[in-house]
Design a protein around this nucleic acid. Sequence first.
DNA 1: CCTCTTTGTGCGTTATAACATACAAAGAGA
DNA 2: TCTCTTTGTATGTTATAACGCACAAAGAGG
Lengths: 186, 186
Amino acid sequence: MSSVLNQLIAEKLKRIRKQRGLSLDKLASLTGVSKAMLGQIERGESSPTIAKLWQIATGLQVPLSTLLAQTENTAEALVQPLATPGVKVRTLFPYSAERGFEVHELTFAAGAESHSEPHQLGTYEHLIVLSGCLQLKLTPAAQQPSAWISLTAGQQYAFHANVAHSYKNSSTEPCCFHDIIQYRQH
Amino acid sequence: MSSVLNQLIAEKLKRIRKQRGLSLDKLASLTGVSKAMLGQIERGESSPTIAKLWQIATGLQVPLSTLLAQTENTAEALVQPLATPGVKVRTLFPYSAERGFEVHELTFAAGAESHSEPHQLGTYEHLIVLSGCLQLKLTPAAQQPSAWISLTAGQQYAFHANVAHSYKNSSTEPCCFHDIIQYRQH
DNA sequence: CCTCTTTGTGCGTTATAACATACAAAGAGA
DNA sequence: TCTCTTTGTATGTTATAACGCACAAAGAGG
């Protein structure tokens, strides 16, 4: 039995239930899973079958992944929109556990740049350049940094953001791009 | 016991194993789950605990969601980029099971419109208008259609695409927007 | 052809999920 | 304050997950 996983599921389930102001009894009615079993799951005393987890998720009307995902706060804390001179960030779709990704519009003034530490394993970024020219460099821990990758308007690029990475706009015009940041389970 | 879910997991596991040319015996060594149990799972005869599924996914070095996701082909077939007069589609990021979403850039000429049947439950669309003006109407099966929702450049809108929906560009200029189509588990 | 190994399935045993029931404690209402 | 209801936990029972082992069939090699 994997007690770490049981604890993770326990915490997620308990949090959702409390957020909705449901008792174990109400949740049992909603999901068709026994009150005693729900209690066991919430205390991490039992590893439910996938069928029971499915029943719970369906009763709660949340995707199954909500009960299995890394904690929402952790993911949000690690990838904050940047506060950097010359860089403006507008959030188009904020992160939510259901969605599993967030979308930002970033505008880099001429000459602006920013640097990110490696994000949590399983974090992917999808860049779509709308205007201007964006340069991206990836710096894996144990390897040579990539050359600067140039992306012009209409181009896109996806990468696993568990490495340090830098953006810059070397041109004399502003650059605007969308960044879809996704947190995949691992 | 949910036999549909068991069948889904059975098919996913069997496919991955066959793709890798592994016997049940080899998979048992790789994952630490007994050969007999793996056989039961693959025949859909048993609903494994989440701990065992985790063990299998870890042994195979795939995300847990790989064993749980809707089939890739099904999702792709249901939401095809549209082939409609006056509408151009450029795929920026194609759908993949790992990603769980796809991103298209659509350009509607002046006067162009398109209509979609309800998509699979759990399909969400996130629209980001880049230029021009896009109008969207949602038509839930048992309710009144929404009024036409107008979205101008810079605006965004997300909706659950399990209802019929229509896009149109009534203006005299082209309209360009991004559509992030996501398939969430239900 | 024969022998050995591998493969997936079946079966019986053990461990644990899942449940119904009981109950102490807390909460709500008169 | 008293009574009833609700809440979460504990316990014993039942159902099923998970396993070890046996075995028939297929495959591989001499």
